[in-house]
Every structure is written in C-alpha cells, then in structure tokens.
Computed example of a mutant assay.
Amino acid sequence: MKVSIIGATGYSGLELIRLLQSHSKVTIQSLHSYSNYSENIAYLYPHLKDVCELSLESVDIKKICQTSQIVFFATPSGVSKDQAAAFIKAGLIVVDLSGDLRLENHTSYKKWYNFDGASQELLTQAVYGLAEWNDVTNQKLIANPGCYATATLLALAPLLIEDILHLDSIVVDAKSGVSGAGKTPNPSSMYTETNDNLTLYKVNQHQHIPEIMQQLKKWNPSIENIQFSTTLIPVTRGILATIYGKLKSTLTTEEVVDLFQKAYQDKPFVRIQEVGNLPTIKQVVGSNYCDIGISVNPVTNQVLVVATIDNLIKGAAGQAIQNMNQAAGFPLNTGLQFSPLYP
C-alpha cells in the first residue's frame, strides 16, 4: 500500500519516514509540507540521504487521494480537523498524530487547544488508537494518542480495570525530553535553559489531561480526576511517568506485577519488568516498547508504577504505525521489530 505523510518535516514526520522505510507492506508515495515546497527531504535533512530523497509537495488533497491509500497527519494541532474528512470520504485510512480528533466532545477541544474543534460528525468516526487496548481493525480514522497519555494510560489500565485503587489517590508525575516540544523555536527549550535544569510546565493545564481522563472513565466510570504534572528534563528523547496510588486492599509487589503480566501477556510492545526492577528511559529509546515496573510500599499500601517510552516512537510515529498495521490488516509488529538503542 502507498502512504503519504502530511507534516513530514516535524520530528514525528521525520520519524515516520525513518520507520516506514523498513516497513515491508507499504511504500512512501509522497511527503507534504506547508513550507519548503519542491525541496528534496534529504537536502533539508542529510541523515535521510540514500534513505529517502522524495521532494516535498504542497498538500493537494485530490492528488493524494488518487495516489495513496493511507495518510498520516504529523501536523500541529488545528490542521487535520479541517482536512481529514476529505480523505475519509475518498476511502483512505487516516492516522492523525495531532490532538485534533482525540476528544470525543468537540466543545472540550477549544478549552485545551485554543482552536475551534472538529465537527462532531468527524469526531464520531474517529477511534482513539491506544494500540494495546482499543481495536482499530478496519477503521478509517484513527486518533493517535499523545505521548504523555500513552505512558500514563498503559501504566494505569490494569489498576483501573481491576478496580484495585482508591480513585481519588492517583498522582502522575511525568517527565519528558526536549523533543516532545517539537521543532518550533521556543526560549524554554533552548540549550541554555534546559541543560542542567528541570522545569515544571503546564501545571494542571496540559492538553493530554482530557484524553487521559476520557479513557480512564471508560475503564472505570467512577473516577473523577487525577493529579497530573509534567516536567521538562535535559534529554533529547524519552518519557518517564511515575504514578502513585493507594491500594484498596493489601497486595504485594509480586501480586501487582502478576496482574500486569497477565494484562499484557499478548501485547508484544509492553514489557513488564521483573520484581525489584524499575525501567529507565535509556532502555526504550529508539524502540516502540513501553517498559513498566511496579513497587508496592507495604507500610503505606501505596503502589508505585513507572512507565517509560520513546516519545517520538511509542508516543507518536511507532504507535501510529502500530495502529496502521491493525487497521490495514498487517501483522501488528511489521516495521517495528527493532531493539532499543544502547548505549
């Protein structure tokens, strides 16, 4: 099948190019940008020389519909909500990596993203593509989850589904590398600001909060809220989400680890750590894995869950390809069978 990438010059778009080049079931047909028309992608990004040397094109919806079967939107928020419908009408599979189609209620979008939301009709067609938990088989419109949301939801799913937490006790302390902010220049992401520094940002205002709550309520409708904070750390890639919650009954670390192992036993991209081990960012960077470690404090009866992902792969391009595989009927791990980078 042939794919087109809209927003090919952003970090997620470039990662899609890298990963799709080794995908055995698809061919990259075209790359699209809202600037740099006609430039060879490898001229702008020399790491792609002899890998992908397509020229960037403007977004011609009619032409894309005539030449491709799958479209990835790796665009900033505010773009796909106005363009996705035309591709769906033409029968293409659309995977949207932005936040435009994640929230089921279009009125919530403006509050969190400061844009008017997509039409309710379009949102009704979209499936939230948390790949391990939501089936997108044969779906045409997939809303790829946010990076923080992916790590947080994978870490909380077994706990909420089994209803073993006091729901008002959940605290999420998530930390991300600088690439999560995208390529647009910003003083807060400059080397001089991020090096040797930690910075809390968007406290109680992060745009991934509503999609997290939306999914958590599907697993356990009784949940009302969580405490969620995000911190920028001086690394290029990676998210480490540390999650705390109070257990309803006395459980050991071994028992909670066993619960997670059973929940993810048939999910090849989630790796549950052995008792006594907690994951690091380094062990997942460059891969589509989410590594999860668990520890229970027997004194306080609190559970600690740590989830790590590469924000540009499992948190963006990799999960998008995982969703594409399922939607198109390809083997789930096609194009994603590579180990993390080490060291």
Rank of each mutant, 00 (worst) to 15 (best):
Leu92Glu: 03
Ala316Met: 02
Trp133Tyr: 13
Pro185Arg: 02
Tyr45Lys: 14
Asp291His: 13
Val270Trp: 03
Leu122Glu: 02
Asn186Cys: 13
Leu247Ser: 09
Val71Asn: 11
Asp258Gly: 00
Ile209Ser: 06
Asn36His: 14
Leu278Met: 14
Ile170Gln: 04
Asn220Met: 08
Ala316Ile: 00
Ile6Val: 14
His206Pro: 11
Phe228Val: 13
Asn144Asp: 06
Gln273Ile: 00
Tyr34Pro: 00
Val257Asn: 04
Phe260Thr: 09
Ala74Tyr: 04
Leu278Trp: 07
Leu278Tyr: 08
Arg18Lys: 15
Gln322Trp: 15
Gln227Asn: 12
Ile243Glu: 14
Thr253His: 07
Ile93Leu: 10
Asn325Pro: 07
Leu20Tyr: 10
Ile294Pro: 03
Val203Leu: 15
Thr107Val: 00
Glu104Asn: 04
Gln215Lys: 08
Leu97Pro: 08
Ser119Cys: 03
Lys246Arg: 06
Ala8Lys: 06
Leu200Pro: 00
Ser30Ile: 00
Ala157Tyr: 13
Asp266Gln: 08
Thr67His: 14
Ala263Tyr: 15
Glu255Tyr: 03
Glu224Cys: 12
Gly180His: 07
Ser339Lys: 14
Ala118Asn: 06
Thr150Trp: 01
Thr150Phe: 06
Leu198Arg: 12
Ile243Cys: 10
Ser119Met: 01
Asn220Trp: 05
Lys282His: 13
Gly335Glu: 01
Gln83Met: 13
Asp266Ala: 05
Thr231Gly: 00
Glu254Trp: 03
Ala174Asp: 12
Leu336Cys: 03
Val203Arg: 14
Cys147Gly: 15
Ile233Trp: 03
Gln326Met: 09
Cys290His: 02
Leu160Ala: 10
Met190Lys: 02
Asn301Ala: 02
Cys65His: 09
Ile28Val: 07
Pro210Asp: 11
Pro298Asn: 12
Gln139Asn: 14
Thr199Val: 10
Met324Phe: 12
His166Cys: 12
Met213Gly: 08
Ile212Pro: 05
Leu44Ser: 08
Lys81Asn: 14
Asp96Ala: 05
Asn138Thr: 10
Tyr264Ile: 01
Gln265Met: 09
Tyr34Arg: 13
Gln83Gly: 00
Ala149Cys: 10
Ser12Glu: 05
Val256Pro: 04
Thr9His: 04
Ile70His: 12
Lys183Cys: 11
Leu198His: 09
Ile294Lys: 01
Gly78Tyr: 02
Thr236His: 10
Asn114Val: 07
Val178Cys: 02
Lys282Pro: 00
Leu341Phe: 12
